[in-house]
């Protein structure tokens, strides 16, 4: 029990929550940006994987982590535009196309890895670069808080800053309004002269951008190599985190943090011999409970509104 308290209450534990949350948060923001325009991006997982791959490859070739990041994000954005083309121009089913893109990325990254390095498992033979960690001046000197908030990977900070940017973008800018209009009612949006196609292209592009950051974080921060299928479901967990939070970037952030907390807890708990079957289950138990609470509060809300309508 002592170890439990020691493990959970240490600043490193809270630090690790933020780190574990980062890729999920990017995925959740990617899901949010596509979802507000009514075209949920199922291909986030594949886009993250692609970005993780190109980030490593290009950083190894150029010797610069930043160019690697640029390449990773670009590859993800290109993939998202391709998905948008399939969906908007060729009228394929969005979910099916998204799944196809995921499978494609999984295969293509291994194929390209083999082509470039002769390996099929991981990029262990390549000397690739990672993005830096950042110490925040002032905050880093505060005892506990500094240990938790400072010294994170640069993309971790970008993730949390993005939450505010995305929230502002969706609710305070004209383009964000159009995005929401297209998502709520595309026909009505069309009738007032908004090009639904163009707006959805933009939302998909932004979604790919976020997924790209998430993927690059995995291979250029979390670890310093690319490994086959290394996203391992984080794109989908991001979709779930966004679903928890509804159409709000802050909601997505809380959803992601919930998953991050559950995951980080599952790591720490395992170290003190709580059965791994149980700890591996934790993040998903959290999801079900959170969804149930969310659904319940929604139901109550609807009931209340109906009762008020009756009164009126």
């Amino acid at each position: 029990m002592n170890e439990l308290v020691h493990g959970i209450l240490s600043p490193q534990f809270f630090y690790s929550i933020l780190r574990v949350t980062t890729p999920i948060l990017f995925a959740a923001l990617a899901a949010l940006l596509s979802d507000v325009a009514g075209s949920t991006n199922i291909g986030i997982e594949g886009m993250m994987l692609m970005s993780a791959f190109w980030g490593v490859m290009v950083s190894a070739w150029t010797g610069s982590a930043w160019i690697g990041l640029l390449a990773g994000v670009t590859s993800s954005v290109l993939l998202s535009l391709a998905l948008a083309y399939f969906y908007l121009n060729l009228k394929t089913d969005l979910v099916l196309a998204g799944i196809a893109f995921n499978i494609f990325s999984s295969g293509a990254t291994v194929f390209l890895l083999y082509l470039f390095t002769g390996d099929k498992g991981s990029s262990s033979s390549l000397k690739s670069y990672v993005l830096p960690k950042i110490d925040i001046p002032l905050i880093k000197d505060i005892p506990v808080v500094g240990d938790i908030l400072s010294g994170h990977h640069v993309l971790t900070y970008i993730a949390f800053i993005s939450v505010f940017v995305v929230q502002y973008f969706i609710y305070k800018t004209p383009l964000g309004l159009r995005l929401r209009a297209v998502g709520e009612n595309p026909d009505a949006a069309q009738s007032v002269g908004i090009s639904v196609k163009k707006i959805r292209y933009i939302s998909m592009l932004l979604s790919g951008l976020m997924a790209g950051f998430g993927g690059a974080f995995l291979s250029m921060g979390y670890v310093s190599w690319f490994a086959r299928d290394m996203t391992n479901g984080r794109g989908f967990i991001g979709l779930a985190a966004q679903a928890l939070g509804g159409h709000s970037a802050f909601g997505s952030m809380w959803g992601s943090l919930l998953f991050g907390l559950a995951e980080a807890a599952s790591y720490t708990l395992q170290a003190i011999r709580i059965p791994s079957e149980f700890t591996n289950m934790l993040p998903f138990i959290f999801t079900i409970i959170a969804l149930a609470i969310y659904a319940r509060s929604k139901l109550l809300q609807i009931k209340k509104i109906k009762e008020e309508e009756k009164k009126a």
């Binding site: 020691h6 490193q12 690790s16 670890v223 391992n232 995951e263 170290a271 003190i272 591996n280």
Partner: peptide
């Protein structure tokens, strides 16, 4: 001995996180 199982053979990020927890303890 601190024993951790990742539940997957292809999730390096999870492996890292588990072992960081081991070292911390």
């Amino acid at each position: 001995v601190i024993i951790s199982y990742a539940g997957a053979f292809n999730d390096p990020a999870k492996g890292k996180e588990l072992v960081l927890a081991q070292y911390r303890q």
